[in-house]
Structures are given as structure tokens and as C-alpha cells.
């Protein structure tokens, strides 16, 4: 409490604004404690997240680190390599003045599964306030919440094929900056849906906002009963992107070819690669998203990836830090 009053004095204008955010959305964020997926976020929480991310983005432009979470320790626990997402969370936490520890386990040979609970227990015992966890098994974040949810706040930084809520929120933020109303907007998600947590979390979030979601991918990379999620499913990319306002291109793991899910990379490129020629089918002001890291010239053409007029890849990276600041702040700051 004393820390709060002390530090407010030193806060920048935008940081003060952030610290004064209030309302139902803010209360709901504090009450939820954990962020596991996008499917249970209320509209108040979504609006608050956008507002907070906007302020954070301005803080990033003008301010140094702010002591908003100065007493908090955030542990980045990545069982799966992802320099991009990990750095993004790390920067976000540091900009809010939190202490960050990075625990990289991706290369460790310790039997998986045993370590997820053990490591969680160790970090919880050390008094870490939040665990930002990436794991290659679906449900891994929920598992940590079930074990230690009382003692530590959990932010899911990606669990298997299941969910990647911070990615979906940053994508939403990026869309919202361009187009405030997504109700009825046609959004295409293209590629390997089966193995994509980005697709799942985006579908869960965007469908609740009333977006008209169209998916396209080879039938072997479309999971069972997909259309029951309230989306339109295509096997031809052209049908999905026609008149689309936004197109999200998913990364194709090269191992899918070895697994026999697609006949060849060449055929995939021919059928699903997003490029300027295909972009003509989309709405005039269409913007293209990619969660990264890109396989240049595989799922997206080189020239489209670098075309700042249509490609939002760089903006996504920038907004990623802002949205993760917002998430950390909303979950961790106490009143």
C-alpha cells in the first residue's frame, strides 16, 4: 500500500492513467486471477483490455519502465521454444517494473509431465506471483491452476494445440485499431487449423464478437466437427478470403508433410499460400495477419509479408508487448 502511494509520484502521465482505470471490467480482470483462454472473457473485460493496451502502447512510445508492478515477480516458464512470445512477455513485465525470471526448460531432458507440477511447485514456493507458461501439451495451464491456482496466478502463453489467449487478444487489439466494430466483419483464418492454438483462441474470441469467421485449409488439417464452432469451413482458400476484411495466415509446421498430412510443400504453396494475387479477392482495405514466426514464401509470399500496406506482422509484434503489458497489469495489480 505504501509502495503504491510512493510510486504513483514517479509515474508518467499515461502510467497514472492506467493505474486509475476502474469499472466493472477492471474488477472482473482482478477477480479472474488467471488467463487460460479467450472463451470466458466477458465483453467488459475485453473493452478494458483494449483500453489498457492502448495506454500501454503509448507508454511504450514515450516512457521508460514504470513502477506499476514493482513488487511483483513474474516467471516465464517455457517448456517449448519461443523466443518471440517469451521476449514479448519479458519486455512487457519489465516495462511495468516487475522482476522477471526466465526458466527455459525446452532443451532439458527431464521427463516431461513430472516437471510441470514439480517446477510449478518450486516456483510457487519461491514466492513467484505469476507464472507465464508455455507447454506443448493441451491443458497444461489448467493443470497448473488446478494444482497451485490458489498460490500463483497463471497466464497461459500457449498450451499445445489448445489456446493462446494473449495472441488472440493482441490480434483483436490490432484489428480494433483499424476497425472498431467486428460484428459482421468477414475474417478468414487460413492453414493448419488442427494444430493451431492461435486459430482456436481467435475463433473463440472473434466469434463472440459476432465476426463472420471463415476457415480454409486442406481437409487433413481441419479437425472434426469444426463447423459446430460456429464458423464456415472451406477447403479452398479463395472462398474463405473473398471480400475478407482480415486474413490470418497460420504457420505450417514442416513436419506435417512428413506426417503424411499434406502430399508436398509445393502443393500446399500452390493451394494455400497467401500472396498479392490472392489478396485481390479480399476486401480493398484487407489486412493480413501472421502470428509468426513466418515460413517466408511458404504460407505467405515474401513480398506480401513485407508489404506494410497490407501486412500487419510488425504491428502485431509491437501490439503484442502492449497487450501483454495490459494483461499483466490487469491481472497482477492490486488495489
Amino acid at each position: 500500500m505504501t509502495e503504491q502511494t510512493f510510486s504513483t509520484v514517479h509515474l508518467s502521465q499515461k502510467a497514472k492513467e492506467l493505474s486509475k482505470l476502474d469499472g466493472l471490467g477492471v474488477q472482473l480482470w482482478r477477480k479472474r486471477r488467471h488467463l487460460l483462454d479467450t472463451d470466458d472473457l466477458s465483453s467488459d473485460e475485453l473493452t478494458t483490455a483494449l483500453h489498457a493496451a492502448m495506454l500501454c502502447k503509448e507508454m511504450m512510445k514515450s516512457d521508460g519502465p514504470q513502477a506499476l508492478l514493482a513488487e511483483k515477480t513474474v516467471a516465464n516458464l517455457f517448456y517449448e521454444n519461443s523466443t518471440r512470445t517469451r521476449s514479448s512477455f519479458e519486455l512487457a513485465a519489465k516495462r511495468l517494473g516487475a522482476t522477471v525470471i526466465n526458466v527455459d526448460i525446452a532443451s532439458s531432458s527431464v521427463a516431461k509431465g513430472e516437471t510441470i507440477i514439480d517446477t510449478g511447485r518450486t516456483l510457487t514456493a519461491m514466492g513467484v506471483d505469476a507464472l507465464v507458461q508455455r507447454h506443448n501439451c493441451s491443458g497444461a495451464a489448467l493443470q497448473i491452476v488446478r494444482e497451485f491456482g490458489e498460490d500463483v496466478q497463471v497466464i497461459n502463453a500457449g498450451d499445445g494445440w489448445h489456446a493462446h489467449p494473449s495472441q488472440a487478444l493482441l490480434d483483436y487489439f490490432t484489428m480494433w485499431e483499424i476497425c472498431k466494430e467486428l460484428n459482421g466483419a468477414k475474417i478468414a483464418i487460413v492453414g493448419d487449423i488442427t494444430h493451431s492454438r492461435v486459430a482456436r483462441s481467435n475463433i473463440a474470441l472473434l466469434s463472440r464478437l459476432g465476426a463472420d469467421i471463415h476457415l480454409a485449409g486442406p481437409p487433413t488439417l481441419l479437425p472434426d466437427d469444426l463447423s459446430k464452432l460456429g464458423v464456415t469451413v472451406h477447403t479452398q482458400i479463395e472462398a474463405a478470403i473473398e471480400n475478407a476484411r482480415f486474413i490470418m495466415v497460420l504457420r505450417l509446421q514442416l513436419e506435417r508433410q512428413q506426417q503424411g498430412l499434406i502430399p508436398s510443400i509445393g502443393e500446399y504453396k500452390r493451394l494455400y499460400r497467401m500472396d498479392h494475387a490472392r489478396l485481390k479477392l479480399a476486401a480493398d482495405n484487407c489486412k493480413v495477419f501472421h502470428p509468426g514466426p513466418m515460413n517466408r514464401d511458404l504460407e505467405i509470399s515474401n513480398s506480401l509479408a513485407d508489404d506494410a500496406k497490407h501486412s500487419l506482422v510488425r504491428v502485431q509484434v509491437q501490439n503484442g508487448v502492449a497487450m501483454r503489458m495490459a494483461i499483466l497489469y490487469l491481472l497482477l495489480s492490486s488495489r
Binding site: 493441451s138 491443458g139 498450451d159 499445445g160 494445440w161 489448445h162 489456446a163 492454438r197 482456436r200 479437425p223 472434426d224 466437427d225 469444426l226 459446430k228 464452432l229
Partner: peptide
């Protein structure tokens, strides 16, 4: 089991 639930949970299904 492979179906809507495995699609939602992001788990590999058994048809």
C-alpha cells in the same frame, strides 16, 4: 474420442 470435444480441447482424437 475424436469429435467436437477433441477439436475444442486441441487434443489428438481417436476416431
Amino acid at each position: 474420442h475424436e469429435g467436437l470435444m477433441s477439436t475444442k480441447l486441441g487434443l489428438p482424437g481417436i476416431t
